[in-house]
Amino acid sequence: MLDKHQKTIATFIHLSTFSRFIIPFGNFIGPLVLWIANKEKSEFVDNHGKQALNFQMSILLYAIIIGTITIPFFIFKILGGLDFIDFNGFHNFHINLGKPSPLLYIGGGLGALMIIAFIVELALIVKASLNARDGKLYNYPLTINFLK
């Protein structure tokens, strides 16, 4: 039988991922500290700790992949469109960006995808926290199980 303390710890494991807005890598440090301190006491807390950490590691991996794909599109567009020859001192500085290229649209689309993924991530963290509060197990979608 789950007691209130176990539910509270599991809830705070998920909510501690929001500490990344205050502490660098807080989305890993907060859940990791709470999980390590309480995983031996409860299988429920152990499960929620693993889920939260697996989800954060999966999100980091996905962000690295999308960022790695996105950045070259912007760099190629910016460097391909700049006209460095027209620099005539500070009196007549001209940058010719030209027409938008398909590379810029692809890069912008991937950037928009990252923003949408961020919003979905926040919603899933809140949903997992509410499930933990109610004593239910929660499995994040599209999560790679690094910790089993």
Rank of each mutant, 00 (worst) to 15 (best):
F25Y: 13
N27I: 00
N27V: 01
I29N: 14
I29S: 12
G30Y: 05
G30Q: 08
P31M: 09
P31H: 04
P31L: 06
L32S: 07
L34Y: 10
W35Y: 12
I36K: 13
A37E: 11
A37K: 12
A37C: 15
N38W: 03
N38D: 06
N38A: 03
N38E: 06
K39S: 02
E40W: 01
E40Y: 06
K41L: 00
S42W: 01
S42I: 00
S42M: 05
V45Y: 01
V45T: 06
D46I: 04
D46K: 15
D46L: 05
N47S: 10
K50E: 04
K50D: 02
Q51K: 02
N54T: 01
F55S: 00
Q56R: 07
Q56Y: 07
I59E: 15
L60H: 02
L60T: 02
L61Y: 10
L61V: 05
L61Q: 09
L61M: 13
Y62G: 08
A63F: 11
A63I: 00
I64D: 08
I64G: 10
I65A: 11
I66C: 14
T68W: 13
T68Y: 14
I69D: 06
I69Y: 07
T70F: 14
I71H: 11
I71C: 04
F73S: 00
F73P: 03
F74E: 05
F74T: 05
I75F: 08
I75K: 08
I75Q: 03
F76R: 15
F76N: 15
F76Y: 15
F76V: 14
K77P: 00
I78Y: 12
G80W: 00
G80S: 01
G81A: 15
G81N: 09
G81W: 10
G81D: 08
L82W: 11
D83V: 09
D83L: 07
D83I: 06
F84H: 09
N88C: 05
N88S: 15
G89N: 10
G89P: 14
F90C: 03
H91W: 10
H91K: 12
N92G: 10
F93A: 12
